[in-house]
Design a protein around this nucleic acid. Sequence first.
DNA 1: TATAATTAATTTGAATTCGAGATAAATTTT
DNA 2: AAAATTTATCTCGAATTCAAATTAATTATA
Lengths: 145, 145
Amino acid sequence: MTNESSQSLKLFIVLSRAYKAINEQVNKFIQTKGLNPTEFAVLELLYHKGDQPLQQIGGKILLASGSITYVVDKLEEKGLLKRNACPKDRRVTYAQITEEGKTFIGEIFPEHEERIHDLMSSLSHDEKETAIELIKKLGLSVGKY
Amino acid sequence: MTNESSQSLKLFIVLSRAYKAINEQVNKFIQTKGLNPTEFAVLELLYHKGDQPLQQIGGKILLASGSITYVVDKLEEKGLLKRNACPKDRRVTYAQITEEGKTFIGEIFPEHEERIHDLMSSLSHDEKETAIELIKKLGLSVGKY
DNA sequence: TATAATTAATTTGAATTCGAGATAAATTTT
DNA sequence: AAAATTTATCTCGAATTCAAATTAATTATA
């Protein structure tokens, strides 16, 4: 290692490669289920965190407001979610997962999780614990920039 | 932690968040220089690794063949690279960074590296070393899938 | 109150990427 | 040598995303 900056660069490179490799596998799986990654992310958010105003979805999964409209339209066309007007504030629209959407995610999520577990099998329990701790520290500090 | 799978899922989530947070900062910087992230990746590859057949660029930075044509067109329009026919195999075209391109990357790369170093400053030297080792192991095992 | 400022959702248009198919060149097989 | 296959690049259309502009509703302020 010639200096500290190049160590940081190396960390950036390995992080990028690992993320892309894992993500590619995860996305392939999601696409076999007829969703794109963004659709999956929105649906999973609603499934695990309940109804959300459209605007907040953008903040949570890092998506521009124009993109939210697009992806929510798609999911609504597929019958996996529906829009509900907020009675208190007519500017606000809630996205709510439908029964069909719940069934759908309920079926594929466990497999999704298991596949991720398989992808991570090169690390031991303790190594994962260490990796989680370090990467979380890194991510949190950047998020605050 | 309820079970091993959820630990892996957690690692996936922190990895995704950290990558996205860092990448967002890096991309913002690149865009202030008038390039998109793919253009930067191609140019940096040529700068550090020398001339490349178009087809190999796709393999190294994970890009479909149609996209390579597009990005190389853009960089050629900007005068940052040029195409060279391969004399031995007329199917092959090499991408070569121009003097203008070298000057350009030579100016922004050190700043790029320094910014990444700043983004990583929440981890100590040893923590980075540990993170590199673990993430590399993870990425390599997935890459072989 | 009315005016201004802010916030939420949508629409529009441009940029980027992929995938499928087309074309051209080289290599291998028959 | 001719045919078939492989390889490299490009073209085209579809999908996805963002940014900017628009519309509508709410909140703050003079």
